[in-house]
Every structure is written in C-alpha cells, then in structure tokens.
Amino acid sequence: MSEFVQWSDTKARIREIDPEWDSPERAAARETSREQLQAELRGAAFSVAAPASADESSGRVTGVVCGR
C-alpha cells in the first residue's frame, strides 16, 4: 500500500530535480496548457451534446442541449 506524501515535500523534491520549475515562464506555460486542456474538454463535452440543426438564414445553431 502506498504512503501519503505532504505536498510541500513533493514540491521540495521537484525543486531539487528542476530548480526552474517555479520560474514565471514555466508557470505561465503551465497555465496556458491548463487553459487549452479545459477548452478542449469543454469542446468535447459540447460535441457529444444533442445534435444541433443550423438555421442557415441566420447562421445560428439551434437545438443544442448541454449538461448531463
């Protein structure tokens, strides 16, 4: 069975391995990556929603149902 590890211990170990982990550039890159992943997940959830029909005269999409 695995042991619980304190987050502070984990972060200290990460800094030992890669001192640049907390650099502003790396933090910004992780945030951008996180935002992209969340957008992809929202898009995937949207794509499995009920089929939509396009109103060609207005360019609007109708009949989209989101949620579970």
Rank of each mutant, 00 (worst) to 15 (best):
E20C: 06
R30M: 02
S33N: 05
P19G: 03
A27Y: 11
A29L: 14
A45G: 12
E31Y: 07
S47C: 10
E20S: 13
L41C: 01
A12S: 08
D18P: 01
S47M: 10
E35P: 01
S47R: 15
A39C: 05
W7V: 13
R34Y: 11
S23H: 07
W21F: 06
Q6D: 03
R26F: 03
E35R: 07
A49Y: 04
E31S: 12
S8M: 11
R34C: 04
A45D: 13
R15I: 07
Q36A: 10
R34V: 02
L41T: 01
A44N: 09
T10W: 06
R42P: 02
A44D: 13
E16H: 03
E16R: 04
R42L: 06
A49P: 08
A45Q: 14
L37A: 08
I14H: 04
E3C: 06
P19W: 01
F46Q: 11
T32M: 06
R13Y: 05
L41E: 07
D18W: 04
I14Y: 14
S2A: 13
E40T: 09
E16M: 14
P19H: 02
R15G: 00
S8Y: 10
A49D: 10
A49F: 02
T32Y: 14
D22A: 00
A28W: 12
W21R: 06
P24R: 15
A28M: 09
A45S: 10
A44V: 03
Q6Y: 13
A44L: 07
V48T: 15
E16Y: 02
I17H: 04
D18A: 10
E3T: 15
W21L: 01
V48N: 13
R42H: 13
E25L: 03
R42Q: 11
L37N: 03
T10I: 13
E31L: 14
L37P: 01
R15K: 15
Q36L: 08
W21T: 02
R30H: 02
Q36C: 04
I17Q: 00
E25P: 01
S8D: 07
Q6W: 13
P24Y: 08
